[in-house]
Design a protein around this nucleic acid. Structure first.
Lengths: 337, 337
DNA sequence: GCAAAAATTGAAATCGGTTTCAATTTTGTT
DNA sequence: AACAAAATTGAAACCGATTTCAATTTTTGC
């Protein structure tokens, strides 16, 4: 059903009907109500493509998806979707080849040239992330999930990674641990750098120095957790505690500890960052895992909201959110043996 | 840059330029080449919304995303994205409230009425899935990832769940196990029913009967794996082997076995279905996990391809693919003690 | 060399809405 | 009751492409 036809059935002009449905003030309350109820009854809904062509709004937010499996992706998206459900805004997934900035930026250009999205959200930035400059010069609004140190002001939402790791490290130090290892995220990402910073600062406050030999960067996976934990624990002067980058990493760490005949929470303490996945919960691990917690889903919801504000014209330099992280102590952290 | 302007720069009419770019035959090779190279140089790209309005194609495939965390989601999407990268087709995520069919069908109606997608992909169907009838009557092309027994013919791609579980169960029976438990997926889903069927058939072939007390349905998660495995293993007449629904479930099962002072691959055998997640691999578990394997990512890629064919007009009743599942034996399965 | 056929190009209509601007009706004021 | 102001409605232009149909140019056949 088209506007023409629908308007004719109502005995009104397309103009009035359009205005009634889009909530313009210059249409009488009576007609508005009638139009709305008839639209519902007859199932009329404007052709989204015509609306977009005319208004110039794409009605979609783009999300770049690296081809490599991103474990956080589904939760974040699900959070976004929840907010956008009522905003008449779609989520557009654009695939990009992992670790290829040139490719990704080409994809942004395409998106802009073809007016497919009103804004994009980018993930896991690095301190000097070239994407930010490109997006800036393209004039495409964007929100960074994470932070960058780019000279261009940009909207961002990040969790307080530095403080998170600082607090978990302090907790371990308070318990008496002195040799603490850290299995960090991907090298070069801002969040990894912040976490490392938190790790160092916690040591420094107590006049200690974080041992560079006990710090490693890698992707978040069960396998990498296992491999690095094992390598740490087999050393002569093995650490008594491990800070893990994610619950998935912690899983591998637990396994490594067990494989050496030791017990988590007894011989070795473990603490990890938890993005809250419904299928893998820290409290159900054995022993239950102490974590710093921050919901990826909530971040997705909020990022969607902020991006909508961005599109609506809110100033970029007003949009900066740093989320605190909860420290949740469970059984996996205890004084050293 | 608009078509008008771009055409003027080339000294051609918009008509010719449009034809050249869309690959129509009635434009000379020389002009086509010139148009293509100039478009590249000047960065001209048709406004996607205008194209869509005119052609009536939405240029997008819809995917319904339940609000609950779907662990498979990211891998599947990533596979889809890979295929669609070169097809000028977007992926549109539409959020739906989990377990609320009415809501989901309302969402379909909205999608159709506003011409937002050319087709949708639906997941995890049930044998008599009401969504199929609705989509059918709406005239919106759709592909089912999984299968239904709906009276309406529909395009589908599924993995051979029955055979997968049948083979893993046969393997356990061959090893000498006689009390085998199964932790299945969500009750009512077609895949759970097929898996249960495979479990039963494997028993029947050998003149045995699958014990209904050793079969349970639940979501795929570490926690549910633990809970059910524990409940099974604490019984008087405990099973000597467990068939788990996913690697995530197997994780919980492993944990349950250990928590009772037993060892996987010694006191208890475990086999699971593996959808191949990059962050949790069966071979790196300890002991390495025997699995039936089928790549979720590959399924996503193929579903995207089939959906494109569907949009291009391929007959629905031609599109049925049943994928075989690999059986991969590792250390977690061994003869009963 | 010329007519007919084939190849190539362009003018204008169209997709389905939104929005500007003008016209009409209603309300308020004296 | 008469007029100005405010509220409401509608006609027509427009968003930026595609595509029909007609016009022009080039090629072919004899």
């Amino acid at each position: 059903m088209k506007l023409r036809e629908f308007a004719k059935q109502l005995g009104l002009s397309p103009t009035t009907v359009s205005r009634a449905l889009s909530g313009y003030p210059e249409v009488s309350e009576a007609t508005r109500a009638r139009v709305a109820s008839e639209a519902m009854r007859l199932g009329y809904r404007p052709d989204i493509n015509a609306v977009r062509l005319k208004t110039g709004r794409a009605g979609a937010i783009g999300v770049m998806m690296a081809r490599s499996g991103e474990i956080h992706f589904a939760e974040f998206m699900s959070g976004m979707a929840q907010r956008l459900e009522t905003a008449d805004t779609d989520i557009l997934i654009t695939p990009i080849t992992a670790h290829n900035d040139e490719d990704e930026m080409q994809a942004y250009r395409r998106l802009v040239e073809s007016r497919r999205v009103d804004a994009v959200i980018i993930h896991s930035p690095r301190p000097r992330d070239p994407r930010i400059g490109v997006l800036n010069s393209l004039g495409l609004p964007f929100l960074v999930h994470g932070r960058s140190e780019s000279e261009h002001v940009h909207a961002w939402l990040d969790i307080d990674n530095e403080n998170a790791v600082r607090r978990s490290t302090e907790h371990l130090l308070d318990l008496g641990h002195r040799r603490i290892a850290m299995i960090n995220g991907l090298r070069g990402k801002t969040y990894s750098i912040h976490r490392e910073q938190g790790f160092r600062v916690a040591h420094q406050e107590r006049g200690l120095v974080a041992d560079p030999n006990l710090m490693v960067c890698d992707k978040f996976s069960d396998e990498s957790g296992f491999r690095h934990a094992r390598s740490f624990l087999e050393r002569a002067n093995a650490p008594t505690a491990i800070v893990a980058g994610s619950t998935m990493t912690a899983l591998g760490v637990y396994r490594a500890v067990r494989s050496l005949g030791m017990t988590v929470g007894q011989n070795v303490s473990v603490i990890a960052h938890d993005d809250v996945f419904p299928y893998l919960t820290a409290e159900s691990m054995v022993p239950s895992l102490s974590t710093t917690r921050s919901s990826m889903r909530a971040a997705g919801t909020r990022c969607a909201e902020l991006t909508l504000q961005l599109i609506a014209g809110r100033a970029v330099d007003e949009i900066h959110e740093l989320w605190p992280v909860e420290l949740i102590l469970r059984e996996s952290t205890a004084p050293p043996p």
